[in-house]
Write a protein that binds this DNA or RNA. Structure first.
Lengths: 137, 137
DNA sequence: GTATTTGCAAAGTGTTTGCAGAATA
DNA sequence: TATTCTGCAAACACTTTGCAAATAC
């Protein structure tokens, strides 16, 4: 494992993610950067996202369609989110319960290197109170 | 919502899944069926898996690569699994804690229609006790 | 007889990769 | 200068879809 080099592209990508502070896809991010006038290729966005994810600087979730969404992770701990399927609103939730439960489970099952992914989605208060027509899409 | 019709293909697919009782991909299942001499197209496998999933007769997880794996669900409740990344061994785990935690969360956050996905993976006792060389793969 | 289901091949999606040139250390 | 990084276009893996023929009800 070697230290990655700095480059304009990587800096721009990391900055944009930190500024956004919401989940966004590689393609979405690429689009935003282009709008902002940056000349960064989609491949570079993908590669940089991998890099940042490996460094633990991003959280990642997966859309029903299979698309991966990334979000800047402020601290060093991974976090869990609750997302509104309607408007995309995401809340950070306290998942201490899960962490402890998973550790218990790991011991009982005799596993090592346990990883967990928890994805929560629903319809938030705002969206739920809209007219039925709207929720039919 | 209309009642689906029965067909040889659908029966074979559902049967094979029930008999297997492990996670398998659409393509993997298609391959098995062909080996068994069935003449079923891949599209039909995909379509039937969707159908069964909609009917709540399957559990579904997603591989890191993006591939979806399906498994017959014996009861009516969805289940959570702990998978060994090495050998594929999967254990059904008791996730009552999670269900309760999710419901609490739902109420506090004022959400509706909450869904959750919990995926646990690690290295099982068997695989963990192997020689380091093997685990490097 | 009518509506649903199938198989095929083509298209679609998000992502990865090989390579030559550009950029970093 | 020696690596690493970038952009491009092509390749990839998995999944979905349009349509005509076959099948279930």
């Amino acid at each position: 494992v070697r230290t990655p080099r700095r480059s304009n592209q990587r800096t721009r990508i990391a900055d944009e993610l930190a500024r956004l502070d919401t989940f966004i896809s590689a393609q979405g991010l690429h689009f935003r950067l282009r709008l902002a006038g940056e000349q960064i290729s989609l491949s570079t966005v993908y590669r940089t996202l991998h890099l940042l994810a490996d460094l633990g600087r991003l959280d990642c979730v997966r859309e029903p369609g299979g698309e991966r969404l990334y979000r800047h992770r402020p601290g060093s701990q991974h976090r869990h989110y609750l997302t509104c399927r309607h408007c995309g609103l995401t809340l950070v939730v306290d998942a201490t319960v899960i962490e402890e439960w998973a550790e218990q489970l790991r011991i009982v099952a005799g596993f090592a290197h346990l990883e967990h992914a928890v994805e929560l989605s629903g319809v938030c208060g705002e969206c739920g109170s809209e007219t039925p027509e709207q929720s039919l899409k």
